[in-house]
Design a protein around this nucleic acid. Sequence first.
DNA 1: GAACTCACG
DNA 2: GACGTACGTGAGTTCG
Length: 919
Amino acid sequence: MASNHLYLVDGSGYIFRAYHRLPPLTNVHGEPVGAVYGYTTMLWKLADELHKADGPTHMAVILDKSSHTFRNELYDQYKAQRPPPPEDLIPQFPMIRDATRAFSLPCIEEEGLEADDIIASYAKAALREGWSVTIVSSDKDLMQLIEPGLDLYDTMNNRRLGPEHVLEKFGVMPDRLGDVLGLMGDSVDNVPGVPGVGPKTAAKLIQEHGDLEGVLAAAPSMKPGKLRDNLIEHADNARLSRVLVTLKDDAPLKDSLEELALQGIPEAPLRAFLEHHGFKSLLAKLSAVADAPVEAPKSVPQEEDPPCDHDGYETVVDVAALDAWIAKARAQGWIAIDTETTGVDATRAELVGISMALEPNKACYIPLAHGGTGLFAEKPDQLTPAIALEKLGPLFEDPAVLKIGHNLKYDMIVLGRLGIDVAPHDDTILMSFDLDAGLHGHGMDELAATHLSHSCIAFKDVVGTGKSQRSFNEIDLKAATRYAAEDADVTLRLWRRFKPRLVAEGATRIYEMVDRPLAPVIARMERHGVKVDREKLAQLSTEFAHSIAALETEIHGLAGGPFTIGSPKQLGDVLFERMGIKGGRKGKSGVYSTDVTELERIAADKDSPGKVIAARVLDWRQLSKLKSTYTDALQAQINPETGRVHTSYSLTGAQTGRLSSTDPNLQNIPIRTEIGRQIRDAFVAEPGNVLLAADYSQIELRLAAHMADVPALKEAFASGADIHSMTAQELFGEVNRDTRGRAKTINFAILYGISRWGLAGRLDVTADEAQGMIDRYFERFPGINHYIVETTEKARDKGYTETLFGRKTHFPRIKSKVQHERQGAERAAINAPIQGTSADIIKRAMVRMGPALADAGLPHVRMLLQVHDELVFELPEGDVDAARPVIERVMATAAEPAITLSVPLGIEIGVGASWGAAH
DNA sequence: GAACTCACG
DNA sequence: GACGTACGTGAGTTCG
């Protein structure tokens, strides 16, 4: 067997060259990818080398990790003049790592070392073993390493660089190149050298005098002039430069040489990466070679992190320590953060401290407001919020430092209230959701247990429970540090696991283009809140209370005695035992069902003795529900500081990708009944403003028509026909109130995964009749049945379904041996791509809405609420005419350009002084 | 804390 | 052969 051949790729050097040589390309998501594309084609070229006789047997990509290295210790001006990378290159750095992983290549980067030093160390080690080495670079510093058995490969010009190239360009052999470079200096790296000495002079001097020391020693005897003076005056600079350009070739190797062995390039991650960026020419090439046998994927040994060392975390209480952490974060380029506060409501909680983590077990806690709240309460030594935030604010807003959090939306709100705009960011809760929705929850404790085999310190164990529960600011600094720093540490560890998985598993698009950018948008909405008219709610409460009391008296009279109407058990006993109404038992607990369908059945039965009481109980139920859940609870939710209600949206609560809303839930405010609708009138605009409600009309049916490819449905939507009437015509041959209603029920049943029994129950027909309608539906709308079969099969085969934008929802229960579990999973799987795609579309609209309104000169239009297919805005009355078309356009085109729908997305917009009036 | 009920899309 | 029936949520009440 031929000897080993190690290829070392100078990734960092390549990125800058590619950036400057290639046009500013963007991918289908609008992300700048010029350098990424160049880099990817370079790796592709290298992959071709694999098959050559003297091709690589081992390969690694080397990247610069930090800007601060040992050279800065020698010379503080080293690389100091270097401008920051261009704006549109910064986001490409993480993508370069993604590209490297897509090729299943090891990626090496180390703190305190430049890529060149790592390359030199690996090169020397390999040469000592008798291997051949090729460095993929055209960097002049690396040319110093050229010797027998080692060459450089410049992929851009497709040429090999050997000693003759160095001789031609610098006039010396590679072993003297360092002396030449030392004399020349390097303005890009701010290496001083000797003024007036360029490549020609340097080469001549070294040729004449052997090496740098020879030149400097000979300087006094040179002919008088500028060159002689400069050599004498800047001799020390020349010596320093000689050291700076010398590569460190004895650094310890992070991975052994053997670990760099090439084991084939699995196709799946590479395809996912190319598809994400839409690199079509490379995809075509991939397909051409895909038929060739591919070696088994390399089994990468899972990197084991050390266990959490709670006592090793640092408590930061002075400026010097804080500065040190901030400097390290800047040098590294990313940091995990977490805020500790006095409560769970981000729009009210006060900041208590901040934790940060740089690497596993390298974490700290910065207490800011610990100590009792009383006047004489003792406070531990700690930084004041003002001083700490003056330092941390610029870090959290530094575009060159990635802030990593778990549910960072919370921290964004807390810090946003303090005037800090956290950016850029990564969020591990969203990463987990986009990778594993449906498999498990995404809370940090659960993820730590699942992915890190680590059980986090329970918050309850720190603050206690019940009456003895304390606020986090009352926790002593030692315990607080153990808990808080662990959170940042765990977040960082999770991030290191999830980040590579995003590309490998095809979740990058949904994460980068939808969920990640949505977090700050939602944070702003939650901070804005919505104005609620307390008087109006109080007035409704009173009205409802009177009606409830009257109904209660009447119901007790009808029942022949008092009982608790709100108790389903007591109500069931009264109706079905005491009053002898016929009905069936339900549920394992043996109580009679008294839900709305049961009560309506009784109320509609002319001959039932319970006809009246059932109707009264229904009224009582409706009013009690409205009063307790809405008019009473909502008043209590008004924030006294802002006078508005601030809901909290969960981005990870609903398996399909929808948002959910809590504390309070503003996604289930009544609208279906006239009496409930009054509650919407209590949601109002500030004086001089109005509310604008914009909703997608029939979006899920439209998406079903597109995704299942149903010609009749698509035509109906294109022509603006009433879809339920059209369905009624197709199924029943005539359109009237009854057939349209039935058609509407069937249309929805389709979206939910139909069963004949379910439909029979809804339409009050036999299962056979229901089956007949379903058969006719499938016949009239070919495509629907195909969609259902395809979707459930995919869910069974792959374990998940996908939306048009690639969002996955997992259905582990689809393989359950328990029939109803399995069938339930099948129905959910049928629905998830449709509901999820709808969620993706409105989320994309939300992400684009802010910039679109700003571009239109409408900075005062604020997005307040999202209710699955509806967005609610508050805006100055005078902005309505200008805002309406912008909002309409952003929503209607939200799927583009990633997806071109075959149905139009209809938008309905209403404006009014209240939410009720805007409908 | 589970069960039941019901508000929304 | 019986069972229990639509998808996705959150919140208030009762009761063991």
